[in-house]
Computed example of a mutant assay.
Amino acid sequence: MSGAPRVTVLDYGSGNIRSAVRALERVGADVTLSHDPADVTEAAGLVVPGVGAFEAVMDGLRAVDAPRLIGRRIAGNRPVLGICVGMQVMFERGVEHGVPTDGLGEWPGTVERLAADVVPHMGWNTVEPAADSALFAGLADERFYFVHSYGVQDWTFDVTIPTMAAPRVTWSRHGGPFIAAVENGPLSATQFHPEKSADAGAQLLRNWLGTL
């Protein structure tokens, strides 16, 4: 697709990956599904999807050298978008069934079981967008589709470099508050599935493409 932003969806064995590819294509991206290092590092944008268990996703990422490649992109200020467990692994660790697993460590925090009587949190929910959010421009009153039992429920990020902008953190609630999205320089992520979130999700993906 001539003139379209070139996006690689990271292929590391995660399920339901084709829906992300189709959603990005529908909003105008030229999409490659790949784990080839050249595709991962050279695309205008990289999408890291993820469903299932935190540990299994990390195992899949390590198998294709994704931690190093994702880190290289972020260090080079090249956009990355994590989705669902693809967001969760950006944090320091996940704890499922009492077993801790190291994440990519881009953000401090632990992914834990949601503090809710009913899990998984499945279905449509509202969010509280961060001020000046680029991802949620024009979407403050929209609902997004969630499917998850775990999340990050505390944000303790400290900006130690005065010239560094503070991350933009968007929240939602299920039982208690949890992080629904983060925008932090080149790295953005959503706990919900924009590819399953109808028109609101499509607009969010367009907003992300506009940052490439």
Rank of each mutant, 00 (worst) to 15 (best):
A140M: 06
R143M: 05
L104N: 00
A116D: 03
I70L: 05
E142M: 11
G50Q: 08
A44Y: 11
G13S: 05
A4R: 14
H97D: 13
F136W: 12
P162L: 10
G50C: 07
V147R: 10
K196W: 12
A29F: 04
V182T: 11
G210L: 08
G45A: 15
V80M: 13
T101N: 08
P129M: 05
G151H: 00
A23M: 10
W155K: 11
S14T: 15
R22G: 05
I83N: 00
V40H: 09
G210C: 06
H174P: 05
A131Y: 04
P79F: 12
T156Q: 04
M164A: 15
C84G: 00
F178H: 02
V182L: 04
S2G: 14
A166G: 13
I161A: 03
I74Y: 12
A189I: 11
G98D: 01
N184C: 13
P129G: 04
R78F: 11
D158Y: 10
F136Q: 11
G176M: 02
L24G: 01
S188K: 15
P186N: 09
G151V: 05
A115I: 04
G15E: 04
D36E: 12
A38V: 15
G45R: 08
D132W: 02
M164N: 15
G45P: 09
A181C: 09
F91M: 01
L33P: 05
F54C: 01
V57L: 10
L81F: 10
P194Y: 00
S172D: 13
I74M: 00
F54Y: 15
M87P: 14
M1Q: 15
P108W: 13
